[in-house]
Simulated scan of single mutants.
Amino acid sequence: MATINSKSSKFGGKLNLTSHVKYEHLIAGISGGVTSTLILHPLDLIKIRFAVNDGRTTTVPQYSSLSSAFSTILRQEGFRGLYKGVTPNIWGSGSSWGLYFMFYNTIKTFIQGGNATQPLGPTLHMLAAAESGALTLVLTNPIWVVKTRLCLQYGAETSSCKATQYRGMVDALAQIYRNEGVRGLYRGFVPGILGVSHGALQFMTYEEMKNYYNTYRKLPIDTKLATSEYLAFAAISKLIAAAATYPYQVIRARLQDHHLNYTGSWDCIKQTWRYERMRGFYKGLVPYLVHVTPNICMVMLIWEKLTN
């Protein structure tokens, strides 16, 4: 806090955050999010379906492996089945990455007092990333609820399944609000807030690796890197964050699934542990890693290149 206060004194003691807003970070984030989503959405869809499969809900398809999921979806739902939920995913990824990068750069630059060569250290990097993640989630959670539900429409639902059918993103938003209120649009928000630690850990690792690398080379910490170096640091930071925080994504997806019924986050955690043990908290991890590793590499590279 002392660090932040000392920086704010340079602006007459006022929290003049708006002077640090750079909209190119918003554009870069949107570009990266949309591009990666269009290419990698099928893997995201499969990850969600694995994550919500608790082994006790008989009305949902069962997949034995990543290749089995691909072939089953293609056979039963066609190519369009692999892109269910892509519209809210594009909106969600584009807006989330755009807002996240804009908030993150604004907060980070404010803490640095406008001096990009000023190192923050792990704690302040995590603080900036966590604040950015929380702000972004507040604005985008309804889009992620819609995306999850559209991804979990399995074609012709069985007659025993009473789940609501949605015709698209707008229809889903309207039906969820009409039937469940604002609370329905913010399902999974609590584990999502806990999941802010994922982004915080990832960005702290990414920034610290870049800073350490440039310091090792005896260069200013804001020195631009080669494409291969950005890709390597992005992949490593994402793998570290995923290994540490993945279970929150399973809980969040299950709370947002309209085929399942939990009273809250703690109930979901207890039932997952009771019936599936630790393995249940890591369902969908393989397609998730296959999806997010190239995803984060594309997003971070586009961000770094467009904000040079």
Rank of each mutant, 00 (worst) to 15 (best):
T117G: 00
L137R: 02
T140A: 08
G199A: 04
Q118H: 11
F103D: 10
A156L: 13
S132G: 05
T136W: 00
H125L: 06
V138P: 06
N105A: 13
F189A: 15
L124T: 01
G155E: 01
F189Y: 14
A163E: 13
W97F: 15
G188W: 14
V146A: 05
A163T: 15
R187L: 03
L152R: 12
I193T: 00
G113P: 04
S159Y: 04
C161K: 13
G184Q: 09
S197N: 04
F101H: 11
G184A: 11
S197R: 00
I143A: 03
L127F: 09
G192V: 13
L201Q: 03
W144Q: 12
V170S: 01
G155Q: 05
P191K: 13
F103T: 10
T140H: 01
T148E: 10
N141V: 05
T148A: 11
M102V: 10
G133R: 01
T87N: 03
A174V: 02
N105C: 07
I90G: 01
D171F: 07
F101I: 06
T158K: 15
R183N: 04
T117F: 02
A174Y: 14
F189L: 14
T106H: 00
G192M: 04
L173E: 14
Q175S: 11
G94T: 07
I143Q: 01
L139C: 11
P122V: 00
G195S: 08
F203N: 02
N115V: 03
Q175N: 01
I111W: 10
M204S: 11
L99K: 10
G184K: 09
T164V: 05
R178H: 11
L137E: 02
V196I: 11
L194V: 01
P119F: 08
A172Y: 11
S197F: 01
